[in-house]
Design a binder for these strands. Structure first.
Lengths: 197, 197
DNA sequence: AGGAACAGAATGAACGTTCAGTCCGAAACA
DNA sequence: TGTTTCGGACTGAACGTTCATTCTGTTCCT
C-alpha cells in the first residue's frame, strides 16, 4: 500500500470515496469509472460505497455539489465589495482562472460533469447562483459608472467565463503549446479590454 | 413510416448511420447511444452497421472527421485573404459563431466528441490544422501592422474560440437567459476590442 | 454477545459484437 | 421470355463482457 493510500486510510470514508471518484472521472471520464474501481481506489469494498451513496448518480451529484462549493469559495477569496470595479473584476476572475489552472483535476472533473446528463441544467445553475449574485452587482455598478459596455450581464459573464475556461483547458491538454504558464494578469487585460466601455 | 424515415430510405446507408449516430449523441451523449438504437434510427439491423464501420469507436471517429470538415468549410466560406485584418477576423469568427448557433445539433455533438476519450488529442489537433493555418497568417499580419496585441497566437485564438463557443452553448442550453438571439456582430466587437493593440 | 460497518462474490441488466439465416436483384441458362 | 442459381447485403436473436447494485458472511467495536 502506497503513501497516498495510507493517508486515505485515515480520512473520512465518505471523503475517500468522493476523492477516488473525482480522480477517476477526471482522468478517464464518467463512463470509464466503474464502481468496482472507485472502491479499489478508495480502499474499500464495492458494497461500502452504497452505505454512503444510494446510487452512482447520487455519488456523482454530491461530487459536483462539493466541487462547485470549493470553486466558488476560491473565486470569492479576498473579494472586497468596496474595492473599485476593475479591481473586483480582476480579483474574481483572476481567482477563477488560477483555480482552474492550478487544480487541473478539478478542472477536468468540472468539464466532465458539466457535459454529463447525470447533472441537470437546474443543478448547474443553482450551483453558480452565489457567484452570479456578486457578478450582477459588479456589472450593474460598472455600467452605471460608464466603465463597462452596456450589454446584458449574461453576455459579459459568458464571454469572460468561456475564454478563461478555454485557456485553462488548453494549457492542461496541450501544454507544449504554452512554453510557460500564461499569467492571469495577461488574460484579464484582454477580458477587461473586451468589456470596458 | 414517417416522412423523415422515407427520406432516409433513399440516402446512402452509411450516411444514414452517421446521421442517426449524430442525432443520438448530440441529444443524449455518447454513453446513451447504444448500437441497437443507432440501428433503429438508421432503419437497419444492428449487424448492418458493422458492414460500414469496424467498431463503435471507428464510427464515432468517422463522425468527428466529417463534422470537423463541415465546420471548417463553414468557417472559411467567403474568406478573402486580401481583405483587411479586421474584416477577415470578423468573417472567420462570425462564420464560426453563426455555424455553432444555427446548428445546435452539430454544436452539441462537437462538445460531446471533444470531451470523449474515443477521440485522441492528436485527432482533434489534426482536424483544426487548416483553420489554424489561416489564423496564423491573419495574426502575423495583424501584429506586424500593430493592429493586434503582441501576444502568442495560441492565447488570442483560444480566448476568442472559448468565448464564442461558450456563447453558442449557453444560448442553446439556457435559451430563456437570452430573450433574442445574440448577434454575431456584438460578440465580435467584444472579441476585437480584447485583442486590438 | 450483539450490532454496526465492511468486503467482495453473486446477480441481473445493458451493451457491443457476431453469425446463421433471409432476402433480392442480377446473371446464367433453357 | 420464363426459370434457376448465385452472391452479397441485410437482419436480429444470441453471446460474452462489463457494469451497477444486492446479498451474505466476516470483522470490529462496545
Amino acid at each position: 500500500m502506497n503513501v497516498q493510500s495510507e493517508t486515505r486510510k485515515n480520512m473520512d470514508k465518505r471523503q475517500q470515496i468522493l476523492e477516488a471518484t473525482a480522480d477517476l472521472i477526471a482522468e478517464q471520464g464518467l463512463h470509464s469509472c466503474p464502481m468496482a474501481m472507485v472502491a479499489k481506489h478508495a480502499c474499500c469494498g464495492a458494497g461500502t460505497i452504497y452505505r454512503y451513496f444510494e446510487t452512482k448518480e447520487e455519488l456523482v451529484q454530491q461530487l459536483f455539489l462539493h466541487l462547485t462549493e470549493v470553486m466558488a469559495s476560491h473565486c470569492m477569496a479576498g473579494y472586497d465589495e468596496s474595492a473599485c470595479i476593475k479591481k473586483r473584476f480582476y480579483s474574481f476572475w483572476g481567482n477563477f482562472y488560477r483555480y482552474m489552472r492550478e487544480h487541473p483535476r478539478d478542472r477536468a472533473l468540472m468539464e466532465q460533469l458539466s457535459a454529463s446528463p447525470a447533472i441537470s441544467e437546474l443543478q448547474r445553475e443553482k450551483a453558480l447562483e452565489p457567484m452570479n449574485k456578486a457578478l450582477t452587482r459588479l456589472l450593474a455598478e460598472g455600467k452605471s459608472q460608464m466603465l463597462i459596455k452596456d450589454l446584458p450581464d449574461e453576455i459579459i459573464t459568458t464571454m469572460t467565463f468561456g475564454s478563461l475556461t478555454m485557456m485553462a483547458k488548453k494549457q492542461q491538454l496541450s501544454p507544449q503549446m504554452f512554453p510557460q504558464a500564461v499569467q492571469a494578469e495577461d488574460l484579464l487585460n484582454l477580458c477587461w479590454d473586451a468589456i470596458k466601455a
